[in-house]
């Protein structure tokens, strides 16, 4: 008998007999009832508490704000996609900026060392945010692959304020994740950190040491 068969057999022929599966009530992880303002406030407070930096912008001025971030943080090489409206708009707006735009729609094997050693920041879109925990959710794509939110020392994420929802449970349920999981789904809540040296927090241990979330509001920034 294979290991698989004998393990399953032992589980199926349980000494104390079959088990009853209880029903679950998920009320405690949903139904927060926050309005947009509360969600944004909570998102910012939570992600701020773990060292995430939030910048407010509007749909019209966000690329200017992005350019300011690049200048302020001396970002010379920015990795970003080419197809998603976020990188498309960013590329257009940054034409005259001195930053060098680095294409990411290349197989990692062809530019591993370059991405690890000579990219200053990665820019990505996000699918949404989670107010309860101050989290971003990302489904990386061929246009915006997995590593650009991880390898460069700074991750700049663009988040639309109306895509912030209350809880992780709400996001999974409302967007039907269970029927269409991508290769990699990701929650990001702050920059990479560790407390493995005597409980002292240090940022950027393996991933980015800075996370900048640029929140785009439909009207004027709140």
């Amino acid at each position: 008998m294979s290991a698989r068969e004998s393990i399953l057999k032992r589980l199926r022929e349980r000494t104390d007999g079959p088990l009853q599966a209880p029903e679950s009530d998920f009320t405690v992880v949903t139904g927060r009832g926050w309005d947009t303002g509360e969600r944004i406030e909570r998102f910012e407070r939570l992600i701020g508490s773990v060292h995430g930096e939030v910048i407010h912008a509007t749909l019209t001025d966000w690329t200017a704000k992005l350019a300011e971030v690049l200048t302020a943080k001396s970002i010379r090489r920015l990795a970003l996609g080419r197809e998603h409206p976020v990188p498309v708009a960013a590329r257009a707006a940054l034409l005259d900026h001195e930053v060098e735009l680095v294409d990411v729609d290349r197989d990692i094997e062809t530019w591993k060392r370059e991405q690890f050693e000579s990219v200053d920041a990665g820019l990505t879109s996000t699918r949404g945010g989670i107010a309860e925990t101050g989290s971003l959710w990302l489904w990386p794509t061929p246009d915006e692959p997995r590593l650009i939110s991880l390898v460069p020392p700074i991750h700049i994420a663009i988040l639309d304020s109306e895509t912030i929802e209350d809880t992780f449970f709400d996001v999974i349920e409302r967007h039907g994740w269970a029927t269409e999981m991508p290769t990699n789904a990701l929650l990001v809540s702050g920059p990479s950190k560790t407390a493995d040296i005597e409980q002292t927090l240090a940022y950027g241990v393996h991933g980015p040491r800075e996370l900048v979330v640029l929140i785009r509001h439909p009207q004027e920034a709140t």
Binding site: N184, A185, L186, S192
Partner: peptide, 10 residues
Amino acid sequence: HVTTYFNMIS
């Protein structure tokens, strides 16, 4: 409240 990363691989 949450960890920095929640990584779901399918």
